[in-house]
Design a protein around this nucleic acid. Structure first.
Lengths: 209, 209
DNA sequence: ACACTAACCTGCCAA
DNA sequence: ATTGGCAGGTTAGTG
């Protein structure tokens, strides 16, 4: 348990590995970037049941391009790949990892209170298409320190481009400002995810330019 | 409902038979009592698979004294006995009847929508130990009437002592108020069933006397 | 094939 | 409104 290097900066190792796998010399951040997307402190349900609940705002922001029930590959810091099925529960409007998640919990011996960090490693191939890879970091809670504290003063995520600290923002802001997420127009339009309507865009008062 | 005697009050016949089998003169409810425990409308899975899912709250309340994998005898209204294996699935925390259940389904020609009613017949032997017997009633759904409606205005269960209508209660209330089920103390204690821990009692705020 | 077990998917509810 | 937690219907895996 001691020898393992499950600390926050492991994802940088992964980035280097991905750089090499991509047959590109690792020359710095111009070739690839590792962006911390979000993290979550695991709940008892996350480790006790077979499902991991993805905070809704991050699912909308980072996973909305993924098809319903698609199985997605993630890589840990040792380049091992894990495949999770992304499942959207219509009735509870909840995003979860189902198949594959429990195996990950057992393999990593995850407990409630541990934290997992989702990163996106973007590899810029130049002539080729850019390839993006999800990388998971695990932070054990063995020391009993608050993970939120640990995350606030670390130096983990290089190249956090857009919003380095979305976690602290109110959800409406986090959803509106960019990216894959809901683009709010004047009139409400259906919000589609995985090809299914999951809601409506809301015309926010006082938001028109 | 006319010719066939598969109606709700059949269990009273069973009670009389049990009284006689016990070599005690049937003198009224002072000698034995028939208590309706719970009922369930059969699902397609209950009749199509080989397993019957026991609603968790009733399993905890009425079957918690039964050992894991123990085979339990039930009697129908014609005094025929049926033996079901009681199985607790740890991973899904679910109680089921397995072995013996399918035979019962076939013999009674049960279909989804039919209802089975579990009763407890307590026989007071005086000098001897009291013997309790599970009695099952079957209510066919041939008439297409809603079983819940039928149950709400019948005169079936004599001697429903504790809570005649637990089905309508929120689960926490149903679990907490009495009987075999989880006895909630001030401090959380492990809930054991079949000798295995299946959870914890929760100290409910504002519940201390 | 069958019996048993585990897992997956969906829904509900309350904090 | 979100989501943690869990109940339960159904299906899949395993011996």
């Amino acid at each position: 348990m001691e020898g393992q290097s499950n600390n926050v900066s492991d994802s940088r190792l992964m980035k280097g590995v991905l750089d090499e796998q991509n047959s590109q010399p690792t020359m710095g951040n111009s070739e690839s970037s590792l962006q911390q997307l979000f993290h979550k402190v695991l709940t008892p349900s996350d480790v006790g049941n077979k499902t991991f609940v993805i905070p809704r705002r991050y699912a909308l922001k980072y996973f909305s391009h993924i098809q319903h029930n698609e199985e997605v590959d993630f890589y840990d810091s040792s380049t091992q790949s894990w495949r999770f099925k992304l499942f959207y529960c219509q009735s509870s409007k909840k995003f979860t990892f189902t198949r594959g998640w429990h195996k990950f919990v057992q393999a990593k011996n995850l407990k409630a209170g541990d934290t997992i960090i989702f990163n996106l490693c973007e590899i810029k191939n130049g002539t080729h298409e850019n390839s993006n890879t999800f990388v998971i970091d695990v932070v054990k809670n063995d020391e009993g320190l608050s993970m939120d504290l640990a995350l606030n003063h670390n130096d983990v995520a290089v190249d956090v481009d857009a919003a380095p600290n979305d976690e602290g923002l109110p959800m409406d802001l986090a959803l509106n400002h960019n990216d894959v997420a809901v683009d709010v127009d004047a009139a409400p339009t259906p919000v589609l995810l995985f090809g299914k309507q999951i809601g409506w865009t809301k015309s926010k008062r006082g938001n028109e330019v």
